[in-house]
Structures are given as structure tokens and as C-alpha cells.
């Protein structure tokens, strides 16, 4: 069946049609967003689904870029997310190794406790964490985001690396340990290279989840210093309440970095998500 040249039979035409309809439903709102971001405010109220703008309004984007603190928020998002991914990977591998390879009494308990985190809703911690961070003067610092981002990505990270590690035979590292290789070196030199696929998955899931997060950010941050990309959008709806075209532009602009990254890494991202979700 596979590999054969596919002819355009009526059944295949129906298939194409159905798939195209779903594609249009999924993509058209985004095209509409992009289209309106180039229009002027008056053009928006004309009839018809899409607008053919008389002049392409690049100034919408200039406003979005400058007044939306785009560069600052993008830098914050990148820094916080990359640090979060690195920390999640390190801690997941360390914990997974301790829980699947090392011999200690509480191994199962600790693993179970962290995995319980997969069931706990992030938003249930918003109220108490606000008080804790406020008392410890962590609000408006990078830690107010980094700590919960890492902590809530950890359960999935531990789950994925742990179950992957269990499928790797112990003989290789045991031989290394007998030869006098230390545990830390075993992890770095032997374990990490073998875990490559699951580490890619953990990185993608962590990055995707935290990149779009804004509930914690808007609860724990009030100054622009560490605000992340979604804030460009959130702030504009207040300041430019009646200037819709500028709001469209800021939405398109803040979506752009991730969409571009996705179009480049499309295969890796979809495969990573599929693997992470089916296992998790």
C-alpha cells in the first residue's frame, strides 16, 4: 500500500477536501490576524473577511516593537526559558540516575513524590507562592519565574528520563564503575550521550510549556525588568484599548519568534511532543 503512486480517485478527493477544511479552520484565524495587523483602524470595519490594505501599515509594527518592549521581553523570555531547560535537564538526569540506578531506601518514595507533581495543577500554587515570594523578596526577580518553571517541568522530565534510563542496559556503566570511574563521570560521559532522544523531548516540552506561560509571570512580577513576551500583548490591550490594528500587530509580532522556530524545527518539535505526550 505504501510507496505505490497514489491516483486521484474520488475517495482521495474527499480525503483532500476534509483535510483542507480542517487546515483552513486551523490556519485561517492566524492569516486573518496577520492580514489585519497590516491594515489601518478604519479599514477594519469594512465588509468581507480579509482586507486588502491601501497602504501596508508597517507603523503598526514599529509601535508594537518599540512600545511593546519587544526586545527586552524577548531577551527575558529567551534567558529564562533556556536557563529553565538547562536546569530541568540537569536535575532530571541526576534524579533519574539516583532513582533508577543507585541503591537507597527512599528511592521509590522520592520518585513517586515528584511524579505526583504531574497531577498537581500549576494554578493551585499561585496564591501561596505569591505570599512566599513576597515575604522572601523574590517577586520581580528572575527567581520568581525560574524556580516554579523548573519545579513544574521536573516531574515530566524525571518521568521521561527515568523510564528511558530503565530501558538502557546496566552493563556498560557497571563495567566503567568497576574500572574505578566515579558516579558523576558515569552520568556525564556514559549516561547523557545515551539519553539524547529523551533529553531532546524533555527540552522541547519544557520550552513549549514555559514559553507561553503568563499566569505566574503576571502574578509574581510587576516591574518590566523580567517580564516575558506575552506581556507585550497583555500590556497593549490596556494602553491601546481602542487602537485595534496596533493590537493585531503586537500579537503577530510576539507570536513570530516561536512560529519561525517551529517552522525551522517542525519535525523535531512534533516528534518530541508526540513522544513526550504518549509516554507521559
Amino acid at each position: 500500500m505504501k510507496g505505490k503512486k497514489k491516483k486521484l480517485t474520488p475517495a482521495r478527493i474527499v480525503m483532500w477536501f476534509v483535510l483542507l477544511v480542517f487546515a483552513v479552520i486551523q490556519i485561517f484565524p492566524l492569516i486573518w490576524l496577520l492580514d489585519f495587523s497590516f491594515a489601518s483602524n478604519t479599514e477594519m470595519f469594512t465588509r468581507g473577511l480579509l482586507i486588502w490594505p491601501e497602504n501596508i501599515r508597517w507603523d503598526n509594527y514599529v509601535t508594537a516593537f518599540v512600545n511593546g518592549h519587544f526586545l527586552l521581553y524577548l531577551k527575558n523570555s529567551l534567558l529564562i526559558n533556556i536557563l529553565a531547560v538547562i536546569l530541568v535537564l540537569m536535575i532530571s538526569v541526576m534524579m533519574a540516575f539516583a532513582c533508577t540506578r543507585m541503591h537507597w531506601k527512599l528511592s521509590g518514595t522520592v520518585r513517586g513524590l515528584i511524579l505526583l507533581g504531574m497531577m498537581i495543577p500549576i494554578h493551585a500554587t499561585l496564591l501561596p507562592n505569591y505570599i512566599i515570594y513576597d515575604k522572601l523578596h523574590l517577586t520581580d526577580t528572575i527567581w520568581a519565574l525560574l524556580i516554579p518553571y523548573v519545579a513544574f517541568s521536573l516531574p515530566q522530565g524525571l518521568f521521561l528520563t527515568g523510564s528511558f534510563m530503565e530501558s538502557i542496559p546496566k552493563e556498560i556503566e557497571e563495567a566503567a564503575v568497576i574500572d574505578g570511574c566515579g558516579i558523576y563521570r558515569v552520568i556525564v560521559v556514559i549516561m547523557i550521550p545515551m539519553l539524547k532522544t529523551s533529553l531532546v523531548t524533555v527540552s522541547i516540552m519544557t520550552f513549549l510549556n514555559n514559553w507561553n506561560e503568563f499566569m505566574m509571570a503576571s502574578t509574581y512580577l510587576s516591574s518590566p525588568k523580567w517580564k516575558t513576551l506575552p506581556f507585550s500583548v497583555l500590556e497593549f490591550t490596556g494602553i491601546y484599548a481602542s487602537n485595534y490594528s496596533v493590537q493585531f500587530a503586537v500579537m503577530a509580532l510576539t507570536a513570530a519568534p516561536m512560529v519561525i522556530l517551529y517552522l525551522i524545527l517542525n519535525r523535531h518539535i512534533t516528534e518530541g511532543v508526540a513522544m513526550g505526550a504518549v509516554k507521559g
Binding site: 487546515a23 486551523q26 490556519i27 507561553n212 500583548v233 500579537m251 516561536m258 517551529y262 512534533t270
Partner: peptide
């Protein structure tokens, strides 16, 4: 690629986009 695209866009953008829709 097309079907998954909305998932990589921030909820902030998606929510306001639909508010406009």
C-alpha cells in the same frame, strides 16, 4: 505542520485573537 501551528502560539495571543474574532 498546519494543524499543530496554533499550539506553538502563546495563549495570550490566542485568547485575544479569539476575542477579536
Amino acid at each position: 505542520c498546519v494543524y499543530f501551528l496554533p499550539n506553538v502560539i502563546s495563549v495570550a495571543v490566542i485568547a485575544y485573537l479569539w476575542k477579536f474574532i
